[in-house]
Amino acid sequence: MNNALPFHDLSPDTASLVNVRFDGTEYALPEGANLAAALLAAGVTVFRTTPTSQAPRAPYCMMGACYDCLVKIDGTTRQACMTEVRKGLIVERAHTAGGVDENG
């Protein structure tokens, strides 16, 4: 058991690992796994920060209802908990600053 990681994996899948990039860091994650779960298992704690106050957020409901695990994939905001891991996936943090003026 790797004690540095917050989750214990009951049945580690080492056979089908693929590379996924999250926020610039490469991770080897099981193909077909739930992306939010796989990132949590890999030790990612903060998935995004909120547009309102830049507060850190991570998966909360894991069932597609709370929208706290939002990430950016191919330029579109997606729910990590509703996405499956696939080879070469490039995941970015959802843009942190909403509000036109902060960006303008």
């Binding site: 909403g98 036109v100 960006n103 303008g104």
Partner: peptide, 17 residues
Amino acid sequence: PKLMNRPSGIIRQVDEG
């Protein structure tokens, strides 16, 4: 993030983004 500078009659970006 900022996508447009001015409003139009059919599309505008509100201050919250």
